[in-house]
Design a protein around this nucleic acid. Structure first.
Lengths: 202, 202
DNA sequence: AATTTTTAAATTACGCCGTTAATAATATTC
DNA sequence: GAATATTATTAACGGCGTAATTTAAAAATT
């Protein structure tokens, strides 16, 4: 390995080190209370050094989102290959998203409700991203159900939107609504899934 | 009117003036970009003067939320007295919430996804608030449907949670998801309502 | 009416923040 | 070993929420 490559590798390693610390800080403190200065202290460098590896605070967040969507789309692909019944696959995919949110609400919030890190829709569609890949797998899972004639015939993307929105909603209520009983969130989530899939079936 | 009352009245008027300016600023700039200093400039006073009328930034937000929930619960009560069919009443209540979100997403975000201004559940239940009043009316509307035997028999609060969560979800997708087609948000909202009510019916 | 007391407002200040510009230290290349 | 490129630091700008202090105005008391 040449010197150039070696340096590039160390650079990559350091970048990842920053990213790991950033993820932890983002999740523990939330986007608001995260700060470049705290992150700098955590990694033992000055705040401005971070800017040599990431454009800015939101660029850090984008990298974290891409990490997440990478794992998420892989998981969806796995579910799809293992499970046989289309509707059961869809249910599992849906539940996987919602369970993640119930288990790690602050991480879920960070990824889904913090900033539009992917820019406009045009930008998202143009540049390839793990976020887009995830959406596409999800849509395929829905399309399988439609093709099997098991759910109502409508645009797959609309159904994906509805299911993801439902998950988002349960988690936002969990996060923000004082009146929402945490002990009931499991019930609400499962009922939501049942009611939606029931309503979608022919 | 005595001098004391007069002064109290002027105080109340000024407080409302600040609140009106704050609402506008909060909605136009979002919670992040709202600042006490900007608000101060807008009303032509120094930043610290605001602290004579509101405890802090979040106290301003709480006042704005209470204003909203006051109008919202009144609207729900109105719908309830006008409409006759229980499920139709529920559908209208649900749609009213979601349409508000589609029309004014930033205001919706401000009220529902910004901070837990009402503190913990214990605090919410203890102190009376318009937010709690709204929840109670919503629950009564659902209970009417259950009592009429038109939807599945389950805890009314769970159904309220599901419906409100569904609305929240559609709006969050609208706000944060780059992949979400704005032109489709109307369709997604209406389909969500239909699918949920269909799934909830016996 | 003059003086004391209360109230309202502004100024100053503290410790944060994201980020840029300028500078120093280190490594690489010639 | 000198010149160049890279990496890191320090200093600084303009912003933030808000507490403490100080000034100005109004009201109450004498």
């Amino acid at each position: 390995m040449g010197v150039k490559e070696k340096r590039a590798k160390y650079r990559e390693e350091f970048r990842q080190e920053i990213l790991d610390a950033a993820r932890e800080l983002f999740i523990n403190e939330g986007y608001e209370n995260f700060s470049m200065r705290k992150l700098a202290e955590k990694i033992g460098y000055s705040a401005t050094t971070i800017y040599l590896y990431f454009k800015n605070k939101d660029d850090l967040l984008l990298a974290i989102c891409e990490e997440f969507f990478g794992k998420f789309s892989a998981r969806l692909n796995h579910i799809r290959t293992v499970s046989r019944d289309p509707v059961e696959t869809l249910r599992q995919a849906f539940l996987y998203l919602m369970d993640f949110g119930l288990k790690k609400p602050y991480q879920y919030k960070l990824i889904f409700f913090t900033k539009s890190v992917y820019g406009s829709r045009e930008e998202l569609v143009k540049t390839e991203s793990m976020a887009r890949a995830t959406f596409i797998v999800f849509k395929e899972i829905v399309q399988d159900c439609i093709d099997a004639g098991q759910i109502k015939h409508m645009e797959a993307a609309v159904i994906v939107d509805i299911l993801v929105a439902a998950s988002h909603g349960v988690i936002t209520k969990n996060l923000y609504c004082a009146n929402f009983l945490k002990e009931r969130s499991g019930i609400v989530a499962r009922t939501m899934v049942d009611v939606l899939l029931r309503g979608l079936q022919k």
